[in-house]
């Protein structure tokens, strides 16, 4: 059985940083979705999702990221993904979504976008 998804949340000035601590699959994507929706309720100027500890994302996780893109565009909140590992980047590539997201190697760089 897999463990629940722990998501660390922090603020860097007006940017909310969400950092899931493990893989995002069908079982864990709802927790990620809830955390993102909750973070957006506080109306940050930017949302950074730190994926540096995420080795695996399935299409449920990708769907959550696409929803996040839609929500942030509607709310006029900036969105950046940080620290993508190779497997996660591969998935974004094969689903042709890479170009839709702003990605940076580190949270620090993502916060500056």
């Amino acid at each position: 059985m897999n463990t629940p998804l722990v998501i660390k949340s922090s603020m860097v000035e007006q940017t909310t940083v969400l950092a899931p601590q493990s893989d995002i699959d069908m079982a864990r994507a709802p927790s990620m979705r809830d955390a993102i929706k909750s973070a957006l309720e506080s109306k940050p100027s930017k949302l950074v999702i730190d994926l540096s500890l995420v080795d695996y994302v399935d299409s449920s996780g990708i769907a959550t990221l696409v929803e996040t893109l839609k929500w942030t565009r509607e709310a006029k909140v900036g969105l950046a993904l940080a620290g993508l590992r190779p497997r996660v980047k591969t998935l974004l590539d094969i689903t042709k979504l890479t170009a839709l997201f702003t990605t940076r190697p580190t949270v620090e760089e993502a916060c500056k976008v």
Binding site: S59, V66, L91, I94, T95, K96, L100
Partner: peptide, 18 residues
């Protein structure tokens, strides 16, 4: 179709692609 950017519906595409 991948040009239709929306959540969901990616599983079959991923299977066929990989």
């Amino acid at each position: 179709e991948l040009e239709d950017v929306r959540p969901g519906g990616l599983g079959v595409h991923i299977i066929k692609e990989t």
